[in-house]
């Protein structure tokens, strides 16, 4: 599985989530959000370290309002973890790597 974070959009979201072999963590972010920028390197690290356990994708809420609205995202960063196409965990706000991994661990 390739390490790194792919970008998804309103039009590619469903296919990307549906076709993934691992749980998928979606990072709802935007350019103007300071805390989103702070977690970007944390997510890069997790994507690299945990490539066999989780796929991380990012969705720019500014450019893709439909998916953000569908999942009722009203605050960023919001991270949604999908397993078999369903949301199994939601986390709002920036967090450090250890805290984030501890939260996600139960679902991976």
């Amino acid at each position: 599985m390739a390490a790194g974070i792919l970008t998804v959009t309103d039009s590619t979201f469903d296919e990307s989530i549906g076709s993934a072999a691992t749980p998928v963590l979606v990072d709802f972010w935007a350019e103007w959000c300071g805390p989103c920028k702070m977690i970007a390197p944390v997510l890069e690290e997790i994507a690299k370290d945990q490539a066999d356990r989780v796929t991380i994708v990012k969705l720019n809420v500014d450019e893709n309002p439909d998916i953000a609205r569908r999942f009722d995202v009203m605050s960023i960063p919001t991270l949604l973890l999908f397993k078999d196409g369903e949301v199994v965990h939601r986390t709002v706000g920036a967090k450090g790597k250890n805290q984030l991994l501890a939260e996600l661990d139960a679902y991976l």
Binding site: A30, W32, G34, P35, V73, M74
Partner: peptide
């Protein structure tokens, strides 16, 4: 309600309102 209307970051979340 944090993240569901209550926000600690106006610059992050103003967009959604």
């Amino acid at each position: 309600l944090i993240g569901h209307g209550v926000s600690t970051c106006a610059t992050c979340d103003g967009f959604f309102f």
